[in-house]
Design a protein around this nucleic acid. Structure first.
Lengths: 191, 191
DNA sequence: CTAGATTGCCTACTATGCGTAGGAAAGCAC
DNA sequence: GTGCTTTCCTACGCATAGTAGGCAATCTAG
């Protein structure tokens, strides 16, 4: 019998595609085995199990988003950089909802430390440096960006405002404007 | 053999407690059956299945939050009302993480229409009326409150800033301040 | 090109969960 | 008590996660 050519990488990308197409819930050993025309037990030589599969998708998503974010932010500063960074997250979530969901999984500390998570944190701070906030404001700002972006993305993804007026994108613009204004104001009042 | 006295209500409250204690994932027909010392099949005369159980928890949580929100907002206006409303959501999420997660489930349109969802929308708008935003700003504002609050709560719940400085609560204060300032500014510039 | 080692995928199994069908008995009406 | 309803049961069928151990496809030595 011919071999299917399973590897951890191929399983991870297939899992990511499956997550985007049918939701993170659909990512399971059984589903992947079907996709590769192989018995479920065969996957266990390559990945530890269902949860490990989802974690791999999370790590992939974090890397992809970090790469996109680095490109988007390059050569920009201030509001431009902030908007570019925020757009990366929103656009990624719309293009890859399953991967994005996976990226929200709570990773154990070791895994998180080895992930692209720290790159995201560094990028956020790099963008914020333009506002010259200082501490602890910069930390507050990192958290607020995270909350606003993830909160908006989640609302948008859960269909809360499908086909409703005004358009989600116009609200998104307000969100980014509000963040920029907020940080600019902090910056002024502290200096 | 004595009867366990199962009812849809008792199952729902037990499911809510289980969700808060062990996560929404832990809510299942089998787990509830164990809790009541009963065979899994016995639950199906009372609830349709695992998903229905979670939806019931969601509806319960939405009602509880709406009741709390009504009380919290009563007699307040402006920033006070906004802060009180936002605090209700954050405090509820911290006290009842499983119920709060359930409340984020995507409900089918009919179920959603019969839920406390519309009460939440009405309350949000009632609080915002104090800012005299008009449309479409008021709608943007409703969405932004939702994004900011849910985003923050989610970050806080996922342990993103456990034991880290500055305290999550100090960031929360900034979030509420930022929302108040934002809406106040919109209000002025439009009038 | 063959012989042996490797390893990829298999069968077979256990355990757990969901959900359905149909039966027995507990409790209620009278 | 007799009969009716409801509650909970046993017994299934099916899907999934994961483990143990085997056969054979492929790689490597010589």
């Amino acid at each position: 019998m011919p071999r299917a050519g399973l590897t951890a990488e191929r399983l991870t990308t297939a899992a990511a595609e499956l997550a985007d197409a049918e939701g993170l819930e659909a990512v399971s050993v059984a589903a992947l085995a079907r996709r590769f025309g192989v018995r479920p037990a065969s996957l266990y030589s390559h990945v530890a199990g269902t949860e490990a599969l989802r974690v791999r998708v999370a790590l992939l998503a974090l890397e992809e988003m970090a790469d996109l974010a680095v490109d988007a932010v390059a050569g920009r500063s201030g509001r431009d950089a902030l908007a570019a960074l925020a757009d990366v997250y929103r656009d990624y979530a719309r293009a890859h909802p399953g991967r994005y969901d996976a990226a929200q999984l709570r990773l154990d500390p070791d895994t998180a430390a080895g992930s692209a998570g720290p790159r995201h944190a560094a990028l956020n701070r790099a963008v914020l440096r333009g506002y010259r906030l200082g501490e602890p404001d910069e930390t507050h700002a990192v958290r607020i960006i995270g909350a606003a972006v993830h909160g908006f993305v989640r609302l948008e993804a859960s269909g809360g405002f499908d086909h409703s007026r005004p358009s989600p994108t116009s609200t998104w613009t307000r969100v980014v404007d509000a963040l920029d204004t907020l940080f600019t104001t902090w910056s002024r009042s502290t200096s």
